[in-house]
Design a protein around this nucleic acid. Structure first.
Length: 882
RNA sequence: GCGAGAGUGGCGGAAUUGGCAGACGCGCCGGACUUAGGAUCCGGUGUCUUCGGACGUGCGGGUUCAAGCCCCGCCUCUCGCACCA
């Protein structure tokens, strides 16, 4: 072959790898060193791979190939997170079974991944919808159930009867479903819950054991939202009931001037006086009608007085009770003690409703002279607090909790924002929850006879009966029954045993379930005795490198850690944390776009004058709406202020930015087309060359040409390989510097600079008419993790019979990589005036002597004296003159 | 509003962490080879310049012999959170 032709060599090597099983995970340990390198497995959507997928996959593939070359036992698997709504929606619309759609989509994804030459061990492929996998997902659910971590609860959900489904808050607009505009009601539905809150502390502490991005750690910490405080009882004035409040500032108890209940609080009705009843009921009804979102949208402190009073447990003071929707029913106890002097929200409410503000903490221990203008939320020293005066906040907290506990009026309490996990879906395409219930019936419920299911007695499906498979259905539409789609499969749902009828759970698991433990199945994917063996777990866990999108920073990563910790406590996994090092690849945006704005009158307006409002974008001075218009980059230029403007009319500023890829914007890049035009290696190298892995970066198809030219050159270099040619000292040095740079950069996941080092080397090698074979050999081995097909091809051209994957990673010789002589700049007063070439470890005198040989330095020194010499060997010589 | 990250040529980005700003690539300009070029190869390319040099890493200050990097104060963008008591 004369020219580099990826369309020929890429399929050739892919077939070679497949046949030889080049990337098969070693069954028995061959090495002391192991590396479990994992991608977040994809949901195989109908639209196939987009260019964002291969970014992370290429990064892990480079590391996997590099680690194998370094003698590690590498586990690098891939699979499919294949349950999920889109396939079910498709089934509802077309009648095609979700399994069929899913299998087709998987085939497409797999073809595309193979096309890119990733070194997965395909023998370990996982499909979460495979009954052999579902079996163990259900098995783990039973593990949770038996540990009391899975329970049923009536949870208020957004139920849309017309769609027959539960909607997320985001899917509701003004009380109507986003799709279709159907009414949505909040009704309690029986749901399976997982007690993740019980693991809140362990989930927090475990973060310290991992090497994760600090942003992700912070997000998890905030999501869990742990706070320490006290639960305090305020008895009603008649003593019949008490309002429990949660506070993180029990030290401000004496500054409490009112108590506020959430509108949904169970005591609202009891506390409301007759005189206030109508007003309160109206407020409660209005609050209920608003969606969660709308309620949180307004920060205005609305609320009404109930007419009821409670008693301050410390000083016996009578305190009015309000209801307000700034108090959330779902957090703490759904009731607060309001301390307007030291809580901004309470302060605003007090101001709005004319309630007293009593200062009980101050910076210096003296009450303020002026009324507070805003809440003083910081800690300080107690004032106006009787016997507690003078205590520092922390001391006060400890003391008062002790006192409350003694008097039986309160106790210490830890609260989290994290809620228990609603684990059931009223859907078809998910894992059936392996639980059944007793049924009361006179006849046979399968024949339509009346029945009652006793949901209070859940029973686990025996493990030997797993997997509990989904029934075959023709109609996947959600029905009116909130028990879910499966409730219609009566033959599946009901069964008779020992003369009694039982009903299976008809809820299915959420999509998260399969992804909660897939990394555990990969270590032993064909085991039919247990989810995975203990030996495999000891050998491979934890995952050493986990790469995936930041959109999973909280939910997937928190849920998977939760399951992992349960299994750890059960003694089933040997390490406390599943993912040792985590990296999020950045998003790849579409190509940069220049946009002009046009008024309806036809004239263009400057982007500076365009503001986006709720009703769209408008031209601010005139208030007229504007439309966007794409401008070719050739018609745009940058003006003196550094602003992008229309070349033909610089008064018209343009918007210049890259947008997220989306179908509607029409800027989606298809990997198939890129591979067809430039080759898989070029696509891989380009994606790694774009910039740092973690950065968000715009796509630019033109730039792939540069990468392709680099690969072309690499091929030409290989053709010039000459066993009799010898490397010059300069080349030898460059070779060893490149080995060092590429090795260090791969370890640090700095692929963009590793590639640039390879380009520098290739530029040098390409200058030669005969390239020393040893240089080509090193080059091929350094290149192959990035461009594996070409790496193999060049390796074969050098006469090797085995895959380059089995070749040793080149080692660099530090003494060869270092220069003995370096060129350093000579500065006068911090400005570069010349350069000298000098021994790396030359002393100051030598350096100064050499500098004085330079005419441009001498002329600068004329008539001046050197006051100070700063010399950093190998770096700089700076002369301070005066 | 709060939190995190970022801002460097026309563009993507480098810069051993305080030591030559702009590696590498795209684009652009010029040249070679060509019937041809959206192919290939070679050279140039931060801005201004009186060709000595001056200026230059979002803006304004500061520390230092020396600042893209450290400190103080702002601006802009991206992401996350958003009444959590």
């Amino acid at each position: 072959m004369d020219r580099y032709d990826p369309s020929v060599i890429e399929p050739k090597w892919q077939a070679y790898w497949d046949e030889r099983k080049t990337f098969k995970t070693p069954e028995t340990p061959r090495s002391e060193k192991k590396a479990y390198i994992l991608d977040m497995f994809p949901y195989p959507s109908g639209s196939g791979l987009h260019v964002g997928h291969p970014e992370g996959y290429t990064a892990t593939d480079i590391v996997a190939r590099y680690k194998r070359a370094r003698g590690y036992d590498v586990l690098h698997p891939m699979g499919w997170d294949a349950f999920g709504l889109p396939a079910e929606q498709h089934a509802i619309q077309t009648g095609t079974h979700p399994r069929v759609t899913t299998q087709e989509n998987i085939a497409t994804f797999k073809r595309q991944l193979k096309m890119l030459g990733f070194s997965y061990d395909w023998d370990r492929e996982i499909d979460t919808t495979d009954p052999a996998y579902v079996r163990w997902t259900q098995w783990i659910f039973l593990e949770l159930f038996e540990r009391g971590l899975a329970y049923q609860s009536e949870v208020p959900v957004n139920w849309c009867p017309a769609l027959g489904t539960v909607l997320a808050n985001e899917e509701i607009i003004n009380g109507l479903s986003e799709r279709g505009g159907h009414p949505v009601v909040r009704i309690p539905i029986r749901q399976w819950m997982l007690r993740i809150t019980e693991y809140a502390d362990k989930l927090l502490e475990g973060l310290d054991l991992t090497e994760w991005p600090s942003s992700t750690r912070t997000m998890q910490i905030e999501w869990i939202g742990r706070s320490e405080g006290a639960q305090v009882r305020f008895e009603t004035v008649d003593g019949g009931d008490s309002v429990e409040v949660y506070t993180t500032r029990p030290d401000t108890l004496l500054g409490c001037t009112f108590v506020v209940l959430a509108p949904e609080h169970p005591l609202v009705e009891k506390l409301t006086s007759e005189a206030k009843r109508a007003e309160v009921e109206a407020y409660v009804a209005a609050a209920k009608a608003k969606s969660e979102r709308d309620r949180q949208a307004s920060k205005e402190k609305t609320g009404v007085f109930t007419g009821g009073y409670v008693v301050n447990p410390v000083n016996g003071e009578k305190i009015p009770v309000y209801i307000a929707d700034y108090v959330l029913a779902g957090y703490g106890t759904g009731a607060i003690m309001a301390v307007p002097a030291h809580d901004q929200r309470d302060f605003e409410f007090a101001k709005a409703h004319g309630l007293p503000i009593r200062e009980v903490v101050s910076k210096d221990g003296n009450p303020s002279r002026e009324p507070l203008e805003e809440a003083m939320i910081e800690e300080g020293i107690a004032v106006n607090s009787g016997p507690y005066n003078g205590l520092k906040t922390a001391e006060f907290k400890a003391k008062i909790i002790e006192d409350l506990q003694t008097s039986g009026k309160g106790e210490r309490r830890v609260e989290t924002k994290l809620r228990d996990w609603v684990f059931s879906r009223q859907r078809y395409w998910g894992e059936p929850i392996p639980i059944y219930f007793p049924v009361e019936t006179e006849g046979d419920p399968r024949k339509g006879d009346p029945y009652t299911i006793d949901y209070s007695k859940p029973m686990p499906v025996p493990r030997e009966e797993l997997p509990l498979e989904l029934p075959e259905l023709d109609d996947f539409r959600p029905g009116e029954d909130p028990e879910g789609v499966l409730a219609r499969a009566v033959e599946w749902r009901f069964f008779e045993r020992d003369g009694k009828f039982y009903a299976r759970e008809t809820n299915t698991m959420p999509q998260w379930a399969g992804s909660c433990w897939y990394y555990l199945r990969f270590i032993d994917p064909h085991n039919d005795k247990e989810p995975f063996s203990q030996e495999a777990a000891k050998r491979w866990l934890p995952v050493d490198l986990y790469v995936g999108g930041a959109e999973h920073a909280v939910l997937h990563l928190l849920y998977a850690r939760f399951w992992h910790k349960v299994l750890y406590d059960a003694g089933i996994v040997p390490v406390p944390e599943p993912f040792q090092k985590l990296v999020h690849q950045g998003m790849i945006l579409g190509e940069i776009e220049y946009t002009a704005f046009r008024r309806p009158s036809g004239e263009l307006v400057s982007a500076r004058e365009v503001k986006s409002t709720a009703d769209g974008e408008i031209h601010e001075p005139s208030g007229a709406p504007v439309t966007r218009e794409k401008v070719d980059s050739a018609r745009a230029k940058k003006d003196e202020r550094g602003e992008w403007v229309l070349a033909s009319d610089p008064s018209i500023a343009l918007e210049a930015r890259a947008h997220k890829m989306s179908k509607s914007r029409g800027n989606v890049v298809n990997p198939d087309e890129i591979v067809r035009e430039f080759g898989a290696d070029a696509m891989r190298v380009y994606e790694m060359f774009m910039g740092p892995l973690e950065a968000t970066k715009p796509w630019n198809t033109a730039s792939i040409g540069g990468v392709r030219r680099f690969l072309d050159r690499a091929y030409q270099i290989a053709k010039k390989s000459d066993a009799s040619a010898e490397a010059s000292p300069e080349l030898l040095q460059l070779l060893h510097q490149t080995i060092r740079k590429v090795t260090d950069d791969i370890e640090a996941l700095h692929f963009n600079t590793a590639i640039s080092a390879l380009m520098v080397l290739s530029n040098e090698l390409n200058r030669l008419n005969a390239v020393p074979k040893e240089a080509v050999s090193i080059f091929a081995r350094l290149l192959h993790p990035f461009a594996p097909h070409l790496g193999e091809e060049i390796w074969a051209m050098l006469g090797h019979g085995e895959s380059v994957q089995f070749a040793d990673w080149p080692e660099y010789d530090a003494s060869l990589a270092e220069r003995s002589e370096v060129e350093i700049p000579v500065q006068i007063l911090g400005k570069v005036r010349g350069r000298i070439t000098i021994a790396k470890d030359a002393d100051q005198e030598q350096a100064l002597a050499r500098a004085k040989e330079l005419p441009q330095i001498l002329s600068q020194l004329e008539g001046k004296t050197i006051r100070k010499v700063i010399y950093v060997p190998g770096r700089i010589l700076n002369l301070i003159v005066g």
